[in-house]
Design a protein around this nucleic acid. Structure first.
Lengths: 192, 192
DNA sequence: GACAGCATGTAAGGGGTTACATGATTCA
DNA sequence: TGAATCATGTAACCCCTTACATGCTGTC
């Protein structure tokens, strides 16, 4: 029975990004936002201490990066051989069950205790965010497809992108429907 | 500037369910699993202490429920007037930003550091879960549609259901694609 | 005989966010 | 003048899960 691996997902997200190439904590944060933003998130307050811990466990190594006057010296981390092994071991354990938590849906579900106009506002805000992400993902996908040689390693990135496009498309469709339904309700019940 | 309300989402999930009707902690857990399972989750270790705290703040009231020999007495909670106000106040604050965390996607994104066969196994497991949920949601939706009188309050429940059907349908489509892609990779690279 | 359901709870601990501190540079 | 970017970090805090404790009943 392969038990769940010791260590939290953040640990492996960091190890994984460092497996691509050496990076600073700052870089990692940006990378997560830009490339994993539609399915993952991290905060500085978690990344920096974690890098330190990983260094203590010799899974990563630090090297002072370029220093510039007026700003803190960069600390560039890279994966060690045992870090690499830890990353590979992570894959051998199946992912734990996901426990969903979508606050907008909770509100919708409890919608009858709120004025329809309030829910409508929330849905519209949500939809705007979904659409922005969707446009961005589609833009990236178009650019990638334009690229001549389909590198075999690119398949993983493309799969993650495709996940985003499909799910966010469904989210957009749904929120469009929700908007229409809520507008009907607002009309039939009066606003406030 | 309406600041974020004090209190975590669990608090309002509980308040919301009690607004429907009085319930015990045990009931709340079951209700979340059965009706909100595709977008929300709670654990006993959070529900019971939270009910106690809400009682301390007079947002809910307790009443001893039916007692049966050989098992702990039920403690049935109901919403007070100020609990109701707290719930309504919650809706006036917009929901905070969501921070996604999908471990399967993280694995896919870092897929090139793992053998394709491992990822394939994870995707297949994932897909089986998605399909089970999807079938269940569709079954419920069919049953609801069969029901004669479309109650106006039912619209919120239907909207939450529809969210599930659409999103999980997209998830199924995507994981089917991922399966095919990973099988190709496994073939072209050899397993292990 | 074992397991699922009923029913409540506690303790420990980790995971993760927010807010704060610092400070120069560049751009509108 | 103000905001954004660069860049690292700490402290406080909370949210939430896991594992444990207890014990009867009904079903396969």
């Amino acid at each position: 029975m392969a038990s769940r691996p010791r260590g939290n997902p953040t640990e492996f997200a960091i190890l994984g990004l460092l497996a691509e190439k050496p990076r600073s904590g700052y870089d990692i944060k940006k990378e997560v936002e830009e490339r994993l933003g539609h399915f993952w998130s991290e905060s500085y307050g978690h990344i920096y201490p974690m890098l330190r811990r990983l260094n203590g466990r010799k899974l990563v190594a630090v090297r002072p990066g370029r220093r510039q006057p007026g700003r803190p010296d960069r600390r560039v981390y890279s994966l060690t051989a045992s870090g690499r092994r830890a990353l590979e071991a992570w894959f051998t354990h199946p992912p734990g069950p996901s426990r969903p938590r979508n606050e907008l849906l909770l509100r919708i579900f409890l919608g009858r205790f709120a004025p329809p106009a309030t829910l409508l506002r929330d849905v519209q805000t949500y939809r705007a965010g979904v659409l922005a992400t969707l446009r961005q993902l589609r833009g990236i996908r178009a650019a990638v497809r334009g690229d001549a040689a389909p590198s075999p390693d690119l398949v993983y990135w493309a799969l993650a992108l495709d996940f985003g496009v499909r799910v966010f498309q469904a989210l957009d469709d749904w929120s469009g429907l929700a908007e229409r339904r809520l507008k009907e309700l607002r009309r039939s019940r009066g606003q406030s």
